[in-house]
Design a protein around this nucleic acid. Structure first.
Length: 255
DNA sequence: GCGACAG
DNA sequence: ATCTTGTCGC
């Protein structure tokens, strides 16, 4: 019978993981995701200690953006990953997977809803990303373990969270000029940066996920911008899964 | 108890 | 996340 570890357990800790043949570059962690919200909170507190907040990046030649689209009418969800050459941001490949979201959306527990499908998509990549951008928060989280931290710990990869709105924390006003940034603080600690990614737009929130320092988080997030509000990797991943959702919707309506 | 609350 | 058109501005 299969052996499951707690959600949040890194693949390398799975019994026999090293002896197991790896089918993909980014093997999908064997995780039991069907936990209760209360259990999920306990797991977040436990696994938050695994997060590495200093730069452990190594070679940085590829960056991936990941996102999910959900269709309320059909229950279908699509996870997509778009991989780019870094820093040129030329696309290398894109992969996706369709599936169901089996955990409700609860602020603070987003990763328990979206991670399973996201990891399934990552497992389809032919080339391993050196850096990952996730649509959501990392350290700027009630228990300092947002989805960017969770994905980072599970895949043991450098991850940055790029969120479009605030979950926790406060910050000073920031200039309307592109590139302006101020610290995001929560309970007296800096948990990210608020970045005006483009002049005059709502800022985005860039936070440490895993194996990246705060200064590097800001620097790399900026390097993934190409003139629009949302960094190219996550923006394209969002468009990608959005198009898949529409196509699926139409294929269903035709039957 | 009240309000806040990623996607 | 998704529901939704036009419209103001660079």
């Amino acid at each position: 019978m299969p052996v499951f570890l707690d959600a949040g357990c890194p693949l390398r800790d799975y019994p026999g993981a090293s002896a197991r043949p790896r089918r993909s570059v980014i093997a999908k962690p064997k995780i039991r995701w069907n936990v209760s919200p209360r259990q999920a909170i306990v797991l977040q507190k436990r696994w938050a200690k695994r997060v590495i907040l200093v730069d452990r990046i190594g070679r940085l030649e590829t960056v991936a953006g990941a996102d999910i689209a959900f269709d309320p009418s059909t229950h279908a969800a699509f996870a997509g990953v778009v991989l780019y050459r870094f820093p040129e941001l030329f696309e290398i490949e894109r992969v996706s997977v369709q599936g169901a979201l089996r955990f409700p959306y609860i602020p603070g527990l987003l990763s328990f809803r979206e991670s399973p499908l996201l990891l399934a998509a990552f497992a389809r990549l032919k080339t391993a990303p050196d850096l990952i951008l996730i649509d959501g928060h990392g350290l700027a989280h009630p228990r300092r373990f947002g989805i960017a931290c969770h994905i980072g710990v599970l895949l043991d990869k450098p991850v940055i969270g790029c969120a479009k709105s605030l979950l926790v924390g406060e910050h000073r006003a920031l200039s309307n000029k592109a590139g302006a940034a101020v610290p995001l603080t929560f309970r007296g600690e800096t948990v990210g940066m608020v970045l005006r990614s483009r002049e005059g737009v709502k800022p985005i929130y860039v936070t440490q996920g895993h194996r990246v320092s705060l200064p590097t988080t800001l620097k790399l997030a900026k390097q993934c911008l190409d003139g629009l509000r949302i960094p190219k990797p996550t923006r394209e991943a969002d468009h990608y899964v959005g198009a898949l959702r529409i196509a699926y919707q139409q294929s269903q309506a035709a039957q």
